[in-house]
């Protein structure tokens, strides 16, 4: 039996071929042919959709199951890892090194103005620094205020450039928290989704970006400071 015998150009043949595709009984080659026709032939795609509408209630009651986190990580690395600088940003060794540096620096910078009143809401602090850079920030995240306070310790931005703050959770790609306003101290409001991740202890990093921030939504310039949040 061949496809031509059963699925000629006559409309009924197409309708049955669409039904068989949706039902799932075709072999690999036939499915490949059907799938190409769906992309190329709107009338055939319409037949397939109509059968999907008829049959899809069969699977509607299928129970939900939470996939493990590694699935999303694998998807992200397949889709997004080719972006500029991704090699450095996704390197675990790089972040571990930075985290170790930040812990060493923490003793020095967990300092004066933030430590005064005892608080019930979690408060996290990070010292952001990196080898080969004189840029240092002290960051305090206050869950109650839903903002981070930044104290600019040292290092100047180049003319026409901005510092942008990023959050990195695990091996995920960085999420921008915004351009750091110029000045000795700055406050930045934190989106709710980012708050949750911060509370669980994410890594923060500062990159040098064109004025106004990264045009791509991902870091494009060098990382000038980084560190992870610690409870105080």
């Amino acid at each position: 039996m061949t496809l031509a015998d059963d699925n000629g150009p006559e409309p009924e043949g197409d309708d049955l071929f669409a039904a068989e595709y949706v039902l799932g009984v075709l072999d690999a080659d036939e499915r490949e042919i059907a799938s190409r026709r769906i992309d190329a032939d709107a009338a055939f795609a319409h037949l397939v959709d109509a059968w999907e509408v008829h049959l899809s209630p069969m699977i509607a009651a299928c129970p939900e199951t939470e996939p493990p986190i590694r699935v999303k990580e694998a998807i992200d690395s397949r889709l997004f890892v080719a972006e500029p600088r991704a090699g450095l940003w996704s390197s675990l060794a790089f972040w571990r090194g930075l985290a170790a540096a930040a812990v060493a620096a923490l003793a020095i910078y967990v300092a004066v103005p933030y430590l005064n009143p005892p608080l019930e809401q979690p408060r996290l602090v990070a010292s952001l620094a990196a080898d080969g850079s004189d840029v240092r920030y002290l960051v305090v995240y206050d869950a109650a205020d839903r903002e981070v306070g930044l104290s600019h310790v040292s290092g100047e931005r180049a003319a026409g450039k901005d510092f942008e703050l990023w959050m990195i959770e695990g091996k995920n790609t960085p999420v921008s928290m915004g351009v750091i306003p110029a000045g000795q101290t700055a406050h930045m409001t934190i989106a709710p989704a980012v708050q949750e991740k911060l509370a669980r202890g994410a890594v923060l990093a500062v990159s040098l970006e064109p004025a106004g921030g990264s045009p791509t939504g991902q870091p494009t310039g060098p990382v000038v400071a980084a560190g992870d949040l610690k409870g105080i």
Binding site: I59, C62, E64, T65, E66, P67
Partner: peptide
Amino acid sequence: YRQTSAKLFGVCL
């Protein structure tokens, strides 16, 4: 992904 992955994982399983 957050909203639909559990449903689609259920289907794949």
